[in-house]
Nucleic acid binder design. Structure first.
Length: 428
DNA sequence: CTAGGGCTAGTA
DNA sequence: TACTAGCCCTAG
């Protein structure tokens, strides 16, 4: 499948995989879905719907991690709804609840004054419930639930009855909103199944194992993988146990938990738990899958290397990649690899150069280049000491404030210098 | 950002 | 060698 993909459009598939890889990672806080997707200008195909869903989920997750539920959230949810409909998925109850509580929370943000007429509650109601939700009603969206309509009438009533306004104003809507959103995101991540790279690795493994699942149609890597993956995992785990050399017994305890598990979780503090769902879970399918995935990634690496360095055709690189530096291969092979099929044992680990250290901090960069020369010794003038005394009298041992209290006289002294001088003057 | 230990150059 | 003033480093 990999080969075929590369015949169709190598870079396109690669871009999608790279985008998907980044979107699924929680650890990179600088990845924001929209700019990443627009940078990759993905074509509008069925494949892309899943990638777009991944992107929207990443945005929602990021928002939840920051703890913000603002009016960008209903936007995201509406986009997600459209994408799910494109995929002909059902809009689940959890989605409706999440949308409802988000809408309420967005309105509640404007209910901070004690009286209805003092704030922007009216504007918010108009904007969110009349316009936004009005449009949902027009197109008969599934997001318009009974719950939502109930809230609409309650909020409407709040204009007339101060006690209802007060009651709503004082309720903890935010908690519910975050809980439902967290639940929604968790479910949707689970429904997305494993990443394209991971499913590709699994497929390749199955081919090699000559499994009955090989002939099964599994999509192109961007299709839904939910229930088939479960079966595949089952098969893999059975295989692993039967072979009895990869994956020690303690790993089997984890087999029960699967990618598609949708157990109920309520509570805003669960945001990070759902993030684990779409992270690569290498203890499940076992070490073997991990190795497959790694091999596969290394193949991509070689491909990129070959095409960028020598301007070679990627397909040629693929062919050649199977027989290079055999002695290196031999040296690095483990017991488990030895007992595998020949096609995999012929694979080699490319010798990659040690990456240059990333000097993110400008301070660190200076330190790495050479040790900073010592500043020349400079005795304190009486003016400086006087300024220090004055500053301490006013601000205490807040050296930053002391320095700011007389920045002209103390221009040559750092906060640490002030502290050191004070220590010299009045002992430790 | 601060506190506190440690280092260095100068001096008795 | 001991002491001091000023500067440096780094944990929290």
């Amino acid at each position: 499948n990999f080969d075929r993909c590369f015949c169709v459009s190598k870079t396109e598939v690669m871009e999608k995989w790279v985008a998907e890889f980044f979107l699924r990672r929680q650890q990179n806080p600088r990845v924001y879905a929209s700019p990443l997707l627009s940078a990759l200008k993905p074509v509008d195909s069925d494949d892309c719907v899943k990638l777009k869903i991944t992107a929207v989920l990443r945005d929602i997750s990021n928002s939840l991690i920051r703890g913000t539920v603002d009016e960008g959230m209903p936007d995201l949810l509406e986009i997600l709804e459209k994408l799910l409909l494109q995929e002909r998925s059902v809009i689940m109850g959890s989605f409706k609840s999440a949308y409802c509580w988000t809408a309420v929370e967005c309105t509640l943000r404007f209910m901070w004054p004690v009286n209805v007429s003092d704030g922007f509650f009216g504007d918010a109601f108009e904007r969110i419930w009349k316009k936004r939700i009005g449009m949902l009603k027009e197109r008969e969206s599934d997001l318009v639930s009974h719950e939502l309509l109930k809230w609409e009438s309650d909020l409407n009533e709040a204009f007339e009855k101060p006690e209802i306004y007060r009651k709503i104003r004082e309720s903890n809507i935010r908690y519910n909103a975050i809980s439902h959103l967290t639940q929604l995101v968790k479910e949707q991540w689970a429904l997305l199944g494993c990443s394209s790279l991971e499913s590709e690795a699994r497929k390749r493994l199955l081919k090699r194992k000559d499994s009955p699942y090989v002939s099964r149609k599994r999509g192109n890597g961007f299709g839904r993988a939910g229930e088939t993956i479960d079966k595949v995992n089952e098969e893999l785990n059975v295989g692993v146990r039967r072979e009895g050399r990869i994956g020690s017994n303690r790993e089997n305890a984890n087999d029960v938990e699967e990618v598609g598990g949708l157990e109920k979780h309520d509570g805003a503090d669960k945001v990070n738990e759902q993030e684990q769902e779409h992270e690569p879970s290498l203890n499940k399918g076992g070490i073997k899958i991990a190795r497959e995935l790694k091999d596969f990634l290394l193949e991509i690496q070689r491909l990129i290397d070959a095409s960028t360095r020598q301007g070679q055709e990627p397909d040629d690189a693929m062919e050649q990649s199977n027989d290079v530096t055999p002695q290196h291969d031999e040296a690095n092979r483990t017991e488990a690899e030895d007992s595998e099929g020949t096609s995999s044992s012929r694979r080699v680990r490319p010798h990659l150069p040690t990456p240059e250290p990333l000097n993110v901090s400008p301070l660190k960069k200076v330190r790495l280049e050479r040790p900073r020369p010592r500043r020349p010794m400079k005795f304190w003038t009486p003016e400086e000491v006087a300024a220090l005394r004055e500053g301490v009298k006013e601000f205490g041992k807040s050296w930053k404030d002391v320095k700011n209290s007389n920045p002209v006289v103390l221009a040559d002294r750092s906060e640490v210098d002030l502290k050191d001088k004070w220590r010299n003057l009045f002992g430790r």
